[in-house]
Design a protein around this nucleic acid. Structure first.
Lengths: 220, 220
DNA sequence: GAGAATTATGTCAGTGCCTGCCAATTGGCC
DNA sequence: GGCCAATTGGCAGGCACTGACATAATTCTC
């Protein structure tokens, strides 16, 4: 095991006993961690507790996750990979912003399956709010998002046949888009309740405000 | 001392011997830390070394800064406060986006003075790149920026007489603006060399791409 | 199917960040 | 000088994380 592999890593999964066992251990670690985090909070949960709940040693935990943050953000990372894959599958004729918008809306369906294969959906929604309310986790999440944005920008540049070093538009577009997505997630989290459908709805509403917000006169 | 106070905290600084000594200790800690970080890298510098260089105990270090990240980002925090103050001093008639743009450009001048009162400008520029290249610092910086953005959004809402809970435009605008600012800083850092003037120039160039990047057809 | 090669896991010791606690020192004020 | 309040230092300890080595489990090879 060199690094954490995306959900769709290799074309044909080796799927020996070893691989399946590793996947099970990893999933168990994630589930144990998210449950403990939801119950006692992130900072009040020690890695030792997570390892014990998953019935492995602390050292093994750190062989699966580089740090405590990584296990907390594991499902978000999986969804990020799905989002990127969805964008790549968009028709080449589509303009950049509609492609991003379409990809984000198209991701929710697949995301549900990816998540529920590991943890209950309810627990994942709890984690969203946990991240927003835990400074250290929010910081780590924002950093991960900035890496996603970088890859999105490269993909947009590729689609448009541009050199991302020469033309700032891919990075600028993705930065603006990413900013709106974060604000959306945050606003959704603050609303307290609400499921994935509400988040989807809010996403549309906020993205539609991007044009008007940049307009000179808001009173028009 | 309850918390870190902005550069312009109280109307009349008490300025007793005690206060001056505290400020000197704090500035010395920042300078010592940034020098060590620039020389040996962030992770390879221990808090003990910083404290020793500033001739205080480790315990005292943690009375001035909540953690190691905070001292690394101290100057950026000061500039953030200046930026917010600059925005507040903008004419009320100005539209949101021009006000943000004007504030960011107007901040550079004052920033130079604020910085050089504590550390050499050159060292501060080094720190910018250090942050970009140190995962933990970048994460902390992004989180701090998201807090700044929240306050910016509230200020924009106030200027426009809007309820930020009801109208998403302040948050959406600031998120897009903040995203572009981060991309700008990043691009500037990757260019290797370049001073504050280059950053200012790049800021203008990137902000001007915001409209075009959101347009449907980039080939027009 | 037995042994060899590979890989995952456990144990242990150690470093560094950070905190609570209490004693000692220092500055402010009469 | 002498009292009060604030600052500081030292110490013990918890927790995140890492390197090194031994052990146990798979997979490979014949």
């Amino acid at each position: 095991m060199h690094a954490i592999e995306g959900a769709a890593a290799r074309p044909a999964a080796p799927s020996g006993l070893r691989e399946r066992k590793k996947r099970r251990t990893r999933d168990t670690l994630i589930r144990s961690a998210l449950e403990l985090f939801a119950r006692k909070g992130y900072e009040r949960t020690t890695v030792d507790e997570i390892a014990e709940a998953a019935e492995v040693s602390q050292r093994t935990f750190f062989r699966y996750f580089a740090n405590k943050e990584e296990v907390a953000l594991a499902m978000q990372t999986a969804v990020d990979a799905l989002f990127l894959a969805t964008l790549r599958s968009r028709p080449a004729a589509e303009a950049p912003l509609p492609a991003l918008r379409g990809a984000v809306l198209g991701t929710w369906d697949g995301a549900r399956a990816v998540i529920e294969a590991v943890v209950p959906l309810e627990l994942h929604l709890c984690t969203y709010r946990l991240i927003e309310s835990t400074p250290q986790l929010l910081a780590a999440r924002l950093r991960a998002l900035s890496e996603v944005e970088e890859r999105l920008a490269l993909e947009i540049a590729r689609r448009e046949g541009l050199d991302p070093r020469a033309d700032p538009r891919p990075h600028v577009l993705v930065a603006a888009f990413g900013g709106v997505m974060r604000v959306t997630t945050r606003a959704w989290g603050e609303r307290g309740e609400g499921g994935l459908d509400d988040l989807r709805e809010l996403t549309v509403a906020y993205l539609d405000q991007l044009g008007p917000a940049l307009a000179e006169n808001w009173r028009a």
